[in-house]
Every structure is written in C-alpha cells, then in structure tokens.
Design a protein around this nucleic acid. Structure first.
Lengths: 127, 127
DNA sequence: ATATGTGCCATGTATATGAAGGGTACATCT
DNA sequence: AGATGTACCCTTCATATACATGGCACATAT
C-alpha cells in the first residue's frame, strides 16, 4: 500500500491518513488480516509525528476498520470492508441538523444555539 | 426599578441586563405597559455602551418581554409575565443535550461532534 | 535490547467566536 | 432641536478549539 501526505492539502494530516487507509480497504488493496505499518514506522516513512499517525489509527480502530494488538502490531479488521462504508459523520450531521432546525424554529438565535451547545459539551449547567 | 451591573461577574453585561429585567417583570416590579428607560439613558446611567443595552433590549423583545415603539420608547409587553417564564435556553439546551448523547452513543468523539455542529451551523456541506 | 500500542505532560500556531466599545447616520415624532 | 430605536462601518480583547509537534514513561512480548 502506498500512502502519500500532502502538506498543502487543507485536510488535516491524520484525516488524510484515515481517508487513504479507508480507501485502500474499500478497494481491497488492504484485505482483512493484513498487517499495517507500525505507528512509529509509518510516521518515520511519511516524516510526520508519531502522535499524528496514532490519532489516525485510533479513529480507524474506533470505526472497526483496523485492530491494534499491542506489541503484535496493527491489522485490518475482519469486518473492515463492511464497516468502512458506514459514514458516522453523515449520521451525526443529520441528527445535529434536525436539532438545530428545531431550535431555530423555537426562535433561538444561532449565537444562543452555539452557547448552549458549548455548555452541553463542557458539562456546564445552564445559566 | 433598580438595575446593577457587576463588571467582575463572569456573566456578560447584556445577559445581566436581560436577567435582571426578566426578574423585575417576574416579580411584578415591572408591570405590562410600564415604560423602560431608553437605551441611551440606561447606558449612561450604568456607564456602559449603548450597543450593549440595545443588545439586551433586542433579545428581550424577541422573547416578547418588552416592546419597542421607535421614538415613543420601550415598554413592557402585555404578555410579559407569561413569556418570561419560558426559558428558551433550557429548551434548546435540552434538545441539544439529547442529540449529543445520541451522537456519543453512536461512537462519535466530542471533537467530531463539534466539527459536525460547526459545519451545520455554517451551512457547509459534510466532507 | 528492541519493538509494539498507549498514556500523560507540555508547547506553539491558526482559526472562529463572543463580548464590548466607538463612531456615524437614518426616519420618526415631540 | 432633541429624543427615540435602529442600522451600518470599524477595532480590541479574551476564550475555545483543532492541529501538529515534542519528550518521557509504561507493560507487553519477541
């Protein structure tokens, strides 16, 4: 598998990694069970920080695209192909959109919605 | 009616105004039909900017707590007492809270939720 | 010893937002 | 003339977040 990082791309580096690995799995360039390069190895190859690669791997594992097995390395998840068609972003975007529309219908301004959202995310109690 | 502003209070100035006026209406210190000080007058009394007072008045009018009648001044809305018991902030906070909990249950990270929220608020299409 | 993933500490940069203030101008009516 | 609410332009400051980076440490198994 070839992974290329474009520094000039407005997409964050870790997101480029996620996207490319997902695409590789979707096109069967990476089959379930295949080993992926280690975090440190890939970071070294791409000349980026290991934390950035780790972040990408963490998200991919959360989506069950890959599996990390500690000292044994990282592998493509058995159900990777099925799971990589699930667009979590589209799901939560849809839910948020519906809620925001409802709030606007209640007469709330966008500013108030943003404040309330921030409060909820930070577990702050409403004023 | 007495209005006091506390610069050291973390609550924004305009929010302090809104809160105190709402409270005055709720406790019948301000009855429907009563006149409120003009924007410039109140700003001068409290030694704050007229824009800040105007912002508070704008929000109060949106919630039908007060009515502005142009050159005639600003008055307490006929249905002020009923409307000031409606806590719009609590309503939208509740809606957002439920949606955010659902998104978290879907496995979304807080960061992803924030990004998606920002995209929806800005009418940006999902990546 | 070496490599694995993972954790926590920290930094700096950039962007977006809110809050507050300053200034000017308008149409309106008294 | 003077007061009313309102609209537009602008700046300044503080805050929050995302992104990327760096160092250090851990338990694990080879």
């Amino acid at each position: 598998m070839e992974i290329a990082i474009d520094i000039d791309d407005p997409m964050p580096l870790f997101a480029q990694l996620v996207s490319q690995i997902k695409h590789a799995v979707g096109s069967s360039a990476l089959a379930p069970g295949n080993a992926l390069p280690s975090i440190r190895q890939l970071a070294n190859d791409l000349d980026i920080n290991a934390k950035t690669v780790a972040k990408a791997y963490r998200q991919l594992e959360r989506d069950s695209i890959i599996q990390t097995r500690g000292y044994r390395g990282t592998f493509v998840h058995p159900d990777a192909q099925a799971n990589c068609t699930i667009d979590l972003d589209a799901i939560i975007t849809g839910k948020l959109e519906a809620t925001i529309i409802a709030c606007r219908a209640d007469g709330a301004t966008d500013s108030e919605i943003r404040i309330a959202f921030s409060n909820v995310m930070n577990n702050k109690k409403g004023a």
